[in-house]
Simulated assay, not measured.
Amino acid sequence: MEFIFLLEEIDAIAGKFWQEMPGQQVFALHGKMGAGKTTLVKALCAAKGVQDNTGSPTFSIINEYIFKDDNGKDQSLFHLDLYRLRNFQEAMDAGVEDTLYSGSICFVEWPDVVEELLPSETIHLYLEALPDQKRRLKAATNSVSLKNM
């Protein structure tokens, strides 16, 4: 999967994303500071119907949001921002492992600190800022395949 889009098109991209990734649960987001990772997660949450105010979990580490599934049942969606974590033990202490294996959708920004904890079926999303306010979003099934994008 690859999308190239303008930021004002991000809501449409979020809808297309869920069409292509309907059953996935854990997404590791890679990209430089300012690439738009949090903005993308906000759009993906909105496309799922999250009503909560979404924001960066930079200081809380983990934010939980609720959306209704196709049967009207409440489901959790987690947004993790591991930028401030210095090591694996801090991630464990913050409850990252429990969150990743909760069965809920998880978006993990700055996943390198917990690379060995990520489920094998994790989808790695690579977001890159391009000229003219465009962004490129690529997906891969492992963190090696697109790291040198």
Rank of each mutant, 00 (worst) to 15 (best):
T58R: 11
N53Q: 13
D74T: 01
Y65V: 03
S56V: 07
T54W: 00
G72F: 13
L40F: 14
V41C: 02
N53C: 00
K42Y: 00
N63C: 01
D70G: 14
C45L: 14
G36S: 06
N71C: 09
F78R: 11
L80N: 05
T38R: 00
K73D: 14
F67S: 12
Y65K: 04
A43G: 09
P57Y: 07
F67P: 10
A46H: 13
C45V: 00
D70C: 13
F67V: 07
S60M: 12
Q51M: 08
K42E: 12
L80Y: 04
K48E: 04
L77Y: 05
Q51V: 08
F59C: 04
I66V: 15
N71P: 01
I61C: 01
T38K: 02
L40W: 06
D74V: 01
P57Q: 12
T38A: 04
P57N: 10
K48H: 04
I66L: 15
N53E: 09
T54N: 00
K48Q: 09
S60C: 13
G72S: 09
L44S: 01
F67D: 05
A43Y: 14
N53S: 11
A46D: 07
T38N: 03
V41F: 06
L40R: 11
G36C: 11
K37W: 10
S60T: 15
